[in-house]
């Protein structure tokens, strides 16, 4: 299940939905929040833009890749867009599997790959009403690169 939405989500509800997948022995979840201590002091909110259509198909493809590499039973990804205040939830990635190793690995892979390949862009909105686009971090590229299989 992949969802791009402005509304918030309930982690408990998402985790319960994953446990309904069948012969599940492990659920690994990741929830990303808007950091309250960013690179700048005066940030009051984030604005997230995306490329409707491509976003969903990129994440579908990542979930398919995860399913080929690890033994997993269900994947749920929710990514919020629009304006988000500090401390709000931005992203949820949950994976259900028979064993924790596959659940942890697939969850981390999905999150790392999403950050560098799903077409979302973040803008920081500061107290004075100004805004600026966030730059992609080299450390995020390195993490995603680390999952490559050659």
């Amino acid at each position: 299940m992949i969802r791009i939405q402005t509304e918030d989500f309930d982690i408990g509800e998402q985790t319960r939905a994953l446990s309904a997948a069948g012969d599940t022995g492990a659920i690994a979840t990741f929830t990303g929040l808007v950091r309250t201590s960013g690179d700048r002091q005066d940030v009051r909110a984030l604005f997230l833009e995306h490329y409707p259509g491509m976003t969903e198909s990129v994440i579908e493809d990542l979930a398919r890749q995860a399913g080929e590499r690890w033994s997993i039973q269900a994947v749920r990804v929710i990514h919020r867009v629009g304006e988000l205040a500090l401390g709000e939830q931005i992203v949820f990635v949950g994976v259900a599997s028979a064993h924790r190793g596959d659940a942890f690995a697939a969850c981390e892979f999905l999150m790392d790959a999403l950050k560098t390949s799903a077409p979302f862009w973040k803008k920081e909105i500061t107290e004075d009403g100004e805004s600026h686009w966030v730059e992609q971090k080299a450390s995020d590229r390195d993490k995603a690169e680390g999952w490559r299989q050659d």
């Binding site: 990303g32 997230l48 995306h50 490329y51 491509m54 990514h79 931005i90 992203v91 999150m111 999403l114 950050k115 560098t116 390949s117 799903a118 077409p119 979302f120 862009w121 973040k122 686009w133 966030v134 730059e135 992609q136 995020d140």
Partner: peptide, 10 residues
Amino acid sequence: IALFPPVTGG
């Protein structure tokens, strides 16, 4: 065709 800066989601 879509042209855009490096992505920054998550």
